[in-house]
């Protein structure tokens, strides 16, 4: 629990991470809303909201392609900026938070090494997950039992989650070591107690996100502006909590 308390004291770090997600929200939401309104306000869809809006408006004139390119670019920027921010955040997790400008300069200092570490741990993780999903898929496709794909899917997801927690643990160790030594360090550290706390915080962070996201979906399926705002807030609380527990898990390793 010390890690969580310590991160709560440095809640500005959580806020910084969360603000990145909020910025993402507005980057998508604002153009989307403007586009929807401009396309629909004067015509039939300004009267009744029917499924025809998809083929007649939203899927017209290459819009899906533009949207896909936009989202992919946003995704790349999001990931890169996240890796960038982590340099400063790890630095502040070890020592103390000394303001946003300092955090940004630390981020810039560690960015090349952190980017390299991201690939070092990310690529094997992807390959291993793909191998496991092939294996479980093959078991499912040979069984007459039609519940097998579901069972295998659950097993596959659990394996993927455990693998990413393990890789994330090593990744985190490596990032701290890199900051301390000032050189790129690769680590496959095994510290049982630390790992359990790390995994615990990670799992809590994922559950936290899914619970609030689920609540958000429930609220959004109901009508009313108030409930829509409540749905939005629920999702944002989920994301904030997710980042809080995630940083707590990193703090465990520091």
């Amino acid at each position: 629990m010390n890690a969580l308390k310590s991160v709560l004291r440095k809640h500005k770090l959580v806020t910084i991470l969360y603000l990145q997600e909020l910025a993402l929200f507005f980057i998508i939401f604002i153009p989307l809303t403007i586009w929807f309104h401009s396309q629909t306000s004067r015509n039939y869809f300004g009267t009744t909201f029917t499924v025809d809006i998809f083929p007649e408006v939203l899927a017209k004139g290459g819009a899906p392609v533009v949207a896909a390119i936009f989202i992919i670019l946003t995704f790349l920027l999001f990931i890169l900026f996240r890796i960038y921010l982590m340099g400063g955040i790890f630095d502040s997790l070890m020592g103390k938070y000394s303001g946003f400008p300092h955090l940004m300069s630390e981020s810039a200092r560690h960015f090349p090494r952190f980017l390299l570490l991201f690939f070092v741990y990310g690529i094997p993780l992807l390959i291993l997950s793909a191998i496991f999903s092939k294996l479980t898929g093959s078991v499912a496709s040979h069984s007459p039992d039609q519940s097998m794909p579901v069972t295998m899917m659950i097993i596959n997801r659990v394996i993927a989650l455990l693998l990413s927690i393990l890789f994330s643990f090593w990744h985190t160790c490596a990032r701290f070591k890199t900051i301390i030594s000032g050189k790129t360090k690769i680590s496959f550290c095994i510290k049982g107690k630390h790992f359990l706390w790390f995994a615990g915080y990670q799992i809590v962070s994922v559950i936290f996100l899914f619970v609030f996201a689920g609540l958000s979906v429930i609220l959004l399926t109901k009508s009313g502006t108030g409930l829509m705002i409540a749905g939005f807030l629920s999702m944002q609380i989920g994301l904030y909590g997710r980042n809080l527990f995630k940083l707590a898990s990193y703090k465990v390793v520091s």
Binding site: F36, F78, S168, L209
Partner: peptide, 27 residues
């Protein structure tokens, strides 16, 4: 139907937030 449009845009934006966040699990 402005409200519905806002809600659709909000939902799409949140789905993207969620997907991006989950994808960055190990970062």
């Amino acid at each position: 139907t402005g409200g519905s449009m806002n809600k659709l845009a909000l939902t799409i934006s949140q789905i993207i937030q969620m997907v991006f966040n989950v994808t960055s699990l190990a970062i």
